[in-house]
Structure formats: C-alpha cells, structure tokens
C-alpha cells in the first residue's frame, strides 16, 4: 500500500481537486486517480522528508482560530487605513520573536498564518538561533504581539507537529 500510494493525503487531495475542476463521472474518476497516483510517485522521488503529524485532531482548532484571527485583523487594518492610522498616531515597527519551533513544515504553516494575517509580515527567520523577524503594522505593545505568536500559534503548532 505504501509503495503504491506513498503520499495518500496528497493523492486524495489531488483527486478531489481533479473532480472539482471537471464534472464528476466514472471516466474522470479513473483519470483523476491515475494523475493522483503518478503525482504521489513523483513526490516520493522528489522529497523524501515527509511532514509528520503527531496530533492531527488539533488541526480544526487551528483552522478555526486562524480564520477568526484573519477576520478580526482584516477589520482592524481596514479601520486603521480608513482613519489614517488613528490620525497619524499609529506606529509600526520591527519585532524579534524567539521561536522554539524547529520542524520545517510547522515553520512553513506558521509563515503562512503570519503572512496571511493582515497586520503582521514575516521578514526573516534565522535557522541557527531560531529568531524570527516580523514587521507589525500597529505595534502598540511588543510583548502582546510576542505573546500572540508564542502562546496562540506556536504552542498549538508544536502540539500538532512535534
């Protein structure tokens, strides 16, 4: 099984994507399954280090948290743009956050979360020291933002991946 379908999740998602792009019929199902299988083999050749999920049950919690946070910060940033940054009193700045997270896929997920959220931008990650450099749009309280990254996302990601 693992030789025939080396990346079951990837293949399943590809098949789903194929069916979403075309109409659902037996022919498309067979064709999509074929494409998904070949892509799985190609992936196995390309990237032997696969992400390990330790506790996948926490993923829906993470997704909900992220969707809600993105919605909230959308409103916050939109309001800041509309009011001209509290009439010129908004202060933005750089922020260094030391991370305990080391797993590459967990870091990739954290990068997507941080960048997709309006108001924070991921600039640089130093792999040796594990320090992340962020730019924050509305830097009222540095420790509050550091806390947001470290307790809200990092601990949950460590629970899922490490």
């Amino acid at each position: 099984m693992s030789r025939l379908v080396p990346h079951p999740l990837l293949s399943a998602l590809l098949l789903l994507m194929w069916l979403a792009l075309t109409r659902v019929s037996l022919g498309q199902l067979v064709l999509g399954a074929l494409v998904a299988l070949v892509a799985g083999w190609a992936m196995a050749r390309l990237r032997p280090a696969r992400p390990r999920l330790r506790r996948a049950s926490a993923i829906p919690r993470l997704l909900g948290l992220v969707a809600w946070d993105i919605l909230r910060s959308n409103a916050a940033v939109a309001w800041l743009i509309l009011t001209d940054g509290r009439h010129g009193r908004r202060r933005s700045g750089f922020l260094r956050v030391p991370l305990r997270l080391r797993d590459p896929s967990a870091l990739a997920v954290l990068a997507i979360i941080v960048t997709a959220t309006p108001g924070t931008a991921w600039l640089e990650y130093d792999a040796e020291t594990g320090v992340l450099l962020l730019h924050v749009f509305d830097l009222v309280d540095e420790s509050q933002w550091r806390d947001l990254i470290q307790t809200r996302y990092e601990s949950l990601l460590m629970e899922i991946f490490e």
């Binding site: 959308n74 940033v77 743009i81 933005s92 997709a116 309006p118 931008a121 749009f137």
Partner: peptide
C-alpha cells in the same frame, strides 16, 4: 497607494488576498 514606507505597504495587499 497611501502608506508611507515599504514595510507598511507590505501589509495592505493582504486585505485583498485574505477576506
């Protein structure tokens, strides 16, 4: 178009690409 520094501007397009 409005914000002053590049690093501030970096935040603006995420409004369009998220919600």
């Amino acid at each position: 178009a409005r914000l002053q520094s590049f690093y501030d501007r970096l935040h603006a397009p995420t409004l369009g690409t998220s919600w």
